[in-house]
Nucleic acid binder design. Structure first.
Lengths: 132, 132
DNA sequence: CTACGAATTCAAGTCAACTTGAGGTCAAGC
DNA sequence: GCTTGACCTCAAGTTGACTTGAATTCGTAG
């Protein structure tokens, strides 16, 4: 069996068949043939779906993900744009680290109201310089 | 002037007045009075909005953010849940690091198609064990 | 050969997070 | 006192990412 049935792909990825059809509709993945009515995907669709999952986890829209990896070949890849993305990710990672610290602080701080706690205020002030 | 006009808050945060009204509607912030028709917010609304921005950057929904910080006081805070969140954040941070590396690799790799590059495949395999 | 289960299409629905538009109101400046 | 600009309310629209439902079509097991 060269190809992966949509049901199999669904089972392996946890994505519903409807979501896979939707991804195909918007051009993120491609089915190569049918078995009866059923879409058959090339094996690398699994890898592509991992990539898509990563992109989603990073907060990118499907359109953005398509823009990064959509074509499947590296001809005409916007390499500078990808490096920009990577840099943005780095900033995002820093912010998330700050949020993580803030959450931990909030969970542990005994002050009656967050806003009264100087440590908390410092945490807030220290981050998100650009975002807000 | 004890209070912050909605226009001022909008200017300082970059959020549109309509967004601020929406946040108030769903209980994320509270206006304390009016000047004519205009909502006046307490100064700590600015801090709260920073917090909200951080939460959004972390991929939380407004409802989730309200659940974490909504009340404004620390009575009955779900501390264990906050620690869970912090741990989830840590996992997300790792994933983002991986995506960053993947993007950088894609930007620099000379292979004609990502899927043919063993390094790329390794990057994919190495991450998102749970997500996909 | 028939029944079953899983997929199919297509249109419409859903949810979050806002935005937009119409029609109205105010306080401040001239 | 009138204009202006920024806000007000409320309903409806928008976008992204899917899901749901109805009616239909297959391949496979019995």
């Amino acid at each position: 069996m060269k190809f992966v049935d949509i049901g199999e792909l669904s089972a392996k990825t946890g994505l519903r068949p409807s979501a896979l059809r939707y991804y195909e509709e918007v051009g993120l993945i491609r089915s190569v043939t049918r078995h009866g009515l059923r879409r058959q995907f090339p094996p690398e669709a699994l890898l592509q779906l991992k990539l898509i999952a990563m992109g989603k986890a990073a907060g990118f829209t499907l359109a953005e993900i398509a823009g990064m990896f959509g074509k499947g070949d590296t001809k005409g890849l916007p390499r500078a744009a990808l490096h920009d993305r990577a840099n943005q990710l780095e900033a995002q990672i820093r912010d998330l680290g700050l949020l993580r610290d803030t959450l931990r602080h909030v969970a542990d701080c005994p002050a009656p109201s967050h806003m009264e706690c100087p440590k908390f205020r410092r945490l807030l002030e220290s981050g998100m310089r650009d975002a807000v």
